[in-house]
Design a protein around this nucleic acid. Sequence first.
DNA 1: GAGTGGTCTAGACCACTTA
DNA 2: AAGTGGTCTAGACCACTCT
Lengths: 244, 244
Amino acid sequence: MISREGGIACYQQLSGILHKQIEEGEFRPGKQLPTETELSRRYKLNRHTIRQAIGRLQSEGLVYTIKGKGTFVANSKISYKVSRKTRFTTSVLDVGLSPDARLLDSYEISAGSELSRKLNIKSSDKVVVLEILRFVNKIPFCHTTSFLSSDRFPDIQAHIKGSFSLYELLKKHYGIEAMRASSSFEVSLPESSDMDMLQISSKVPVLIVKSTSKNSKGDIVEYCITRFRGDLCSITVNFNGEGR
Amino acid sequence: MISREGGIACYQQLSGILHKQIEEGEFRPGKQLPTETELSRRYKLNRHTIRQAIGRLQSEGLVYTIKGKGTFVANSKISYKVSRKTRFTTSVLDVGLSPDARLLDSYEISAGSELSRKLNIKSSDKVVVLEILRFVNKIPFCHTTSFLSSDRFPDIQAHIKGSFSLYELLKKHYGIEAMRASSSFEVSLPESSDMDMLQISSKVPVLIVKSTSKNSKGDIVEYCITRFRGDLCSITVNFNGEGR
DNA sequence: GAGTGGTCTAGACCACTTA
DNA sequence: AAGTGGTCTAGACCACTCT
């Protein structure tokens, strides 16, 4: 099965083999992969070499491992849609899944140089920070840190505790319809806080999306940083204003 | 420096330390990091543990390694901008860097089921495939595979060899102004072809962007898949039609 | 030839899950 | 208690770069 010659590393070959087997349905989503010791025996490779191969599959989002239990085949990625006007809840409902959210924390800070630029306010101005963890089908999906000017949204901390859709709240309480103006996409690896909150290992990449929202007049309403589980989603951006 | 207790893995601690040192400018971009054996001595850790730590930094795009030479601190990410009307060349020039492109291959295939859906043509229709490798400052940056209907763009293979801007070509020869309609973003790890073309190791993630372009009437003009080096770029999407 | 990173092996101990 | 994945060590050989 595994060739020692040919210059292709054993772990690359093995991850290729497993990748193919998963793609072809030999291992179904949710099913356990053979254990590391079993694969080690079967392919006559050291357990560490097996682990290198499985590490790749983890980073690709093809499998996930649970300590003490085993390695399992992942479900296919969730196609998460984003346009000028989209909210998490509707996007997730659209693809037939069930969304959920939890407000982890809310507090106030001074803007400082970077946030003052992002929000177009003075650096001494106060900023409300909201940390929200969002779930799809009870699985942690992304972690959002939102920044809003305290002056423009007084008492938002009190209001947010009741409702979980920030956009609904802005509309109802402040009469503002927020629209996405720009978003940047970047890849990284999880920090320890990401690993805890999103329940992923250090090998699973995170997709970092930094977005600015404006109101209909073009004033900046919100700046937010969302960290998505890279193994769970692909994000589709729609450039035609309206459509989802 | 490294604590054996506290439950945090040594390699996590070390990658944290190095991360911080790089961020704080102790190691400048382009400079070589201490070698693995040196770090092994300095932190009293096995070379494999050192390698785990460095592997993380590689995936984060903070450092890159050259076999036989060493590990070096990477430059900061290139902020690549994308909007409804953007071309690679102008985007790169905008940030003061020098773009370049090479046509790797061009050939014709039958659409098949997936492409026929993407391009809104019959599955028996012919499709022209263009493979283009793009560079920023002589460094491979992304690899694009473009799909266009052969019927709608006769002789495009002959034309493309002269000019490298596909959008220019569509405009000049076919009188079509292509606009980005939607793009999906996804993270993965490089396949062996990616590693060769983009000159990256297996640890550096790739950012996969799949885009559909339409003409002013709303007909689909092009479907393309671009694989960006995840260590080199962050991609900014602008939702206001015009702006870059 | 000396030094670098890339791969593989062998063996150990740990924390966690399951039964 | 047995089995799982997570981490660390020690030692080996390779291909590559530099001189």
